[in-house]
Amino acid sequence: MSEQPTIEVRNLRTHFFTKAGVVKAVDDVSFSVGKGRILGLVGESGSGKSVTGFSIMGLVDPPGRVAGGEILFQGRDLAKLSEEEMRKIRGARIAMIFQDPMMTLNPVLRIDTQMIETVLAHDKVSEAEARKRARAALVQVGIPSPDERLKAYPHQFSGGMRQRVAIAIALLHKPELIIADEPTTALDVTIQGQILFEVQKLCRESGTSLIWITHDLSVVAGLADEICVMYASRIVEKGTVDEVLDHPLHPYTRGLIGSVPSRNVRGRPLAQIPGMTPSLLNLPPGCAFRARCPRASEACLVEPEMTAPLPNREVRCFHPHLETVAA
């Protein structure tokens, strides 16, 4: 563990200063990803996963901004960089793939334009050389007849193909870190599987670190090394994939696992976590999961801190499910 992690996020806070009040979309989030490692960032819709990714990229739009914490990328705090310094890192050393492939490519620009401009934004090469690299990237993600495809417009591609193009763009500069924000959610299951497999392969081959954002635990199970579970802007549980999935400590994680079909006994109705994600605008004091938690007690009226009840495990709960580990 002496090696410096690719990215280390410490006590990140990203807040939106809206007219209705301050929305703490990311609150005291810490994690790190080592070289060539894959982190799964899991949580329900609205838990702050995307905002965490955009915070690392320096792409939080007003009225939001990073209000505190450190984002150490190879030891350098990104939150302190100027816009131009940050631009040089974006797309070159940290790349991001978005959730909806139908929306990420500009509809009025050809694929070659959108790829070549990415090359030229960071490297002083000729346009011919940039085109060659763009073509190679398309081949790498398995797009057939790349020369033809380069001249096409996004609407001439299927959703899966568009996402491959977006991945190819992310790979252009062989970044040290890729943030993949639910890149397969909008795709059908077969294509989802293919893309997962390919991304995993590419990362292992090139030593790229990956943050894979998803609300679907089953996706992360076969892919990630570590998991961070997010709930209402905070990380509530952290650990290696196997440990978290086999012995979830946090009641919320347990609920999530209960709602994954593959881990259920056939025929039994899918377990659901009762209740709704609370509004971030007026979170009640204490544990944010309290209203939905079967284990809630008086103690939970106080905000729980992140604790490490077991080696290499962290959880934000007063009554973690330690009994499952012992069993």
């Binding site: 792409l59 040089k88 974006r90």
Partner: peptide, 12 residues
């Protein structure tokens, strides 16, 4: 999204 993606690519 495509504008945000354009920025994420590091374009000026």
């Amino acid at each position: 999204d495509y504008v945000k993606f354009a920025r994420a690519k590091g374009l000026s």
